[in-house]
Structure formats: structure tokens, C-alpha cells
Design a protein around this nucleic acid. Structure first.
Lengths: 201, 201
DNA sequence: TATAAGAGTGAGTGCTCACTTATTTTTATT
DNA sequence: AATAAAAATAAGTGAGCACTCACTCTTATA
């Protein structure tokens, strides 16, 4: 039995992450992973029973980095800021986090289509918690009158989708930045004005 | 030389579309396509030089169905409606179109990551034209004072991303409908209030 | 230094794949 | 009906794949 926290295992995971990100799961061979990790092909299978388990290992190791924890920590820090600024910070923070984890998100989104396990991991550990946190944020604004009554998941989803879209566009389709003009400030404005109690002219 | 509009060719394209949609490009074998199309495997290669060319054929044949034309036609029909209703119709129409073309979109988005040609086809023939049309819609609203001055691509992108997100969530990640509450009416409200000239309380 | 166990190796294995080719079947023309 | 051309077939073919296994090397302990 091999040591499960051996540096070799870590090297394999890191190498696999790079190669999967570049070529996709099906487009990557175990030989390539081994080469990138500077180990023999056979070594992979001392640490992981199959190629698929290497993918699961990569996702399990890194999923927390794009998940709920960074956002929750961050929200605690900006709790006392006015809504406008809080929203801007949330947008910037999410774009940063998602941008940093873009390769992992790409891998998960791509493979989740054909793999039940990955789909569940993503939905339960990333999508739903983040949606929940953002919903609470808007619920709070409703309670203190800064937002009119509505399903709080709606502004949460608009926020999420806008951020998501930017990242997907830039990094999955490599659309140039000029067409990706989700400036945090104007997106904040639209969202805030849009959810305000309606003012009569 | 074979007839390039032969029914067999069409059968192959339709079969390939179904199988690619279900299993992805790399997850599909030429044998499976042949089986689904009720032809021998060799027959595929009388009509297409390679498996990749079958994928290109599928995309080329169907791309117009999710592209700019349906939207342009549709916008002509609702030209005289008030902005609120026009927006609602646009949202519903796009969701319908994207929903109908979801399999193709999934295929393109997935494979575009690893294929320059598909990436270009999608960006140039789907993304940019639609963004352009929606931008014009908002530009028009700016001209007649229904929208404050801003980069018209911003509301266009919010609209696009929200619709996209819904479709991706539902059909790529199979997130349940309860978490996908982009009702056309409330999304319209938020967007419209959000882009209005700001009213002082 | 002798021994044993853990870690690492890489040629080998059987299988699957995209694609080919020799052959048969269908269609069109006279 | 005879012939030729076109279309379709299915048994190959060789390359490449995930994974195995018999073996070597390294390290630790006595």
C-alpha cells in the first residue's frame, strides 16, 4: 500500500490538472499525464485505480478553491459597507475567484455533461451554496427596504450569470475583452436600480 | 464522386447530431454513428473524409437555427410594441430558440474549447450578431430617452447571460427548475428599471 | 552488511478506434 | 436484358489507448 499523501501523488494531480485543462479529459492520455508529472506511466496506477479517478482526485482537491468558503469569508469582511460598494466588491471578488479557478470550472462543466458524479459535486458544492449566499444578501436588502419584494434568487442569478458569462466568454470561447464590458460599477448600478422600490417620476 | 445532397448524407448528419449530443464528440465512435444512421461504417467515409468533418457538417447544417436570423425576423414583428412587452417577448423567444437548439449549443461550446474552427464559427455567426442586435435595441431606447447613457453592450450582455445561464443550468447541469426562476416578467422589470434615467426619490 | 518492504519502472497486453479496401448490390442507360 | 457506373458494404488494418506485471531501485532497520 502506498502512502496516500505522498509528494508523487500530488505531482500527478497537479500534472493531470494542467493537461486536462489544456486537452480535456478524453483528449488526454495517461502517458501525457505521466510525462508531465515526471513519473512512469505505471506509477499513476499505484496511486489511482483508473484515469477517471485521477480526474475525481483533481476535482476533489481543488473544488474548495472555487466554492463557498472564499465567498463566505469575504462577505464577513464587507458586512458593514453600503450596498453599492458591497455589491461591487462581491462582483470583483467573484470574477477574481472564478477567473483563478477557470480551468477547473471548464473541466468540470465540460465533463459534468457525461458524468453524474462531477455534476453532483458541482451543483451541490459550488452552485447551490453560492446561490444561497447571494440570495441571503438580497433578502437582507429587502428586509431593510433597499430592495422591493421579489424572489431573492432572481437578482442572485442575474449576478451569478453575468459573472459566469464573462468568464465563460473570455476563457472558454476566448472572446476579446472589448465585447466583455461587464464593468463592476455599471452592472452594480443596473442591478441596484433595477431591484429598488419603484420611484414614480 | 458521390452526390453531395444525397439522403444518406442527411441521415448521417442527423444521426451524428443525436449521438454527439448524447455522448460528446470524443465519446462517440464512427461505428455508433453508422448504426444510428442505418448505414455501414464505411459509408460514412464516402460522404465525409473524417469524423471531424462529420462534426463540422452537423454544425454547418444547423448553425442558422440558433443564429441571428430567427431573432432578426422576430424583432421585425414586435417592432411597434412598448419596450416592456418587447423585452419580454425577446426573452421568451431567445429562451425558446436556445432551448430548441440546446444540444447543438452544448456540442459547440464543449468542442469549441479544443477546436479553433468551431470557436470561430460560434463567435462570428452566433455570439457577435446576436449581441449586436440586442445592443441596437438598447441604443434605440437610449435615443428616445427610455434608457440612460451607457455602453449598450452592457444590458445586452446581461440579457444574453441570464438567458444563457438558464439554459446551461437546466440542460447542461440539469439543475432543477425551482432554482431557475428567471421569469421573463421580473427579469424585464429589473433590467428596465435598472437602465432607466435615474429618478430622484 | 543483510534483509525486507515500499516506491518506481516501462515493455507488454488486449482491446478499441478511425479509417481503408476489395467486394457486392443497386441504379441508370441503352 | 446487358453493361457500366455509382453506392453501399463489412471484413480488415495498424495505430494508439488504458491498464498490468515482472522487475529494479531506494530506503529503513537490525
Amino acid at each position: 500500500m502506498v502512502n496516500q499523501n505522498h509528494p508523487t501523488k500530488l505531482a500527478i494531480l497537479q500534472a493531470a490538472f494542467r493537461v486536462f485543462g489544456e486537452k480535456g479529459f478524453k483528449g488526454t492520455t495517461t502517458k501525457e499525464i505521466a510525462l508531465e508529472a515526471n513519473v512512469a506511466e505505471g506509477t499513476l496506477f499505484r496511486y489511482f485505480p483508473s484515469k477517471l479517478d485521477i480526474l475525481y482526485g483533481v476535482v476533489d482537491t481543488l473544488i474548495t478553491s472555487i466554492g463557498v468558503e472564499p465567498l463566505q469569508n469575504f462577505l464577513g469582511e464587507i458586512n458593514d459597507l453600503p450596498t453599492v460598494e458591497a455589491l461591487q466588491y462581491i462582483i470583483l471578488n467573484r470574477m477574481e475567484t472564478i477567473g483563478a479557478g477557470k480551468d477547473l470550472i471548464r473541466i468540470i462543466l465540460t465533463e459534468a455533461q457525461y458524468d453524474e458524479h462531477l455534476r453532483e459535486v458541482y451543483v451541490e458544492q459550488v452552485f447551490k451554496p453560492i446561490q444561497q449566499i447571494l440570495s441571503s444578501f438580497f433578502e437582507q436588502k429587502m428586509a431593510n427596504g433597499e430592495c422591493r419584494e421579489m424572489n431573492p434568487k432572481l437578482p442572485a442569478n442575474i449576478l451569478l450569470s453575468s459573472i459566469f458569462f464573462t468568464v465563460i466568454s473570455q476563457h472558454l470561447l476566448t472572446i476579446e475583452a472589448e465585447d466583455n464590458i461587464f464593468e463592476a460599477s455599471e452592472l452594480t448600478n443596473i442591478l441596484l436600480y433595477g431591484i429598488q422600490e419603484r420611484l414614480k417620476p
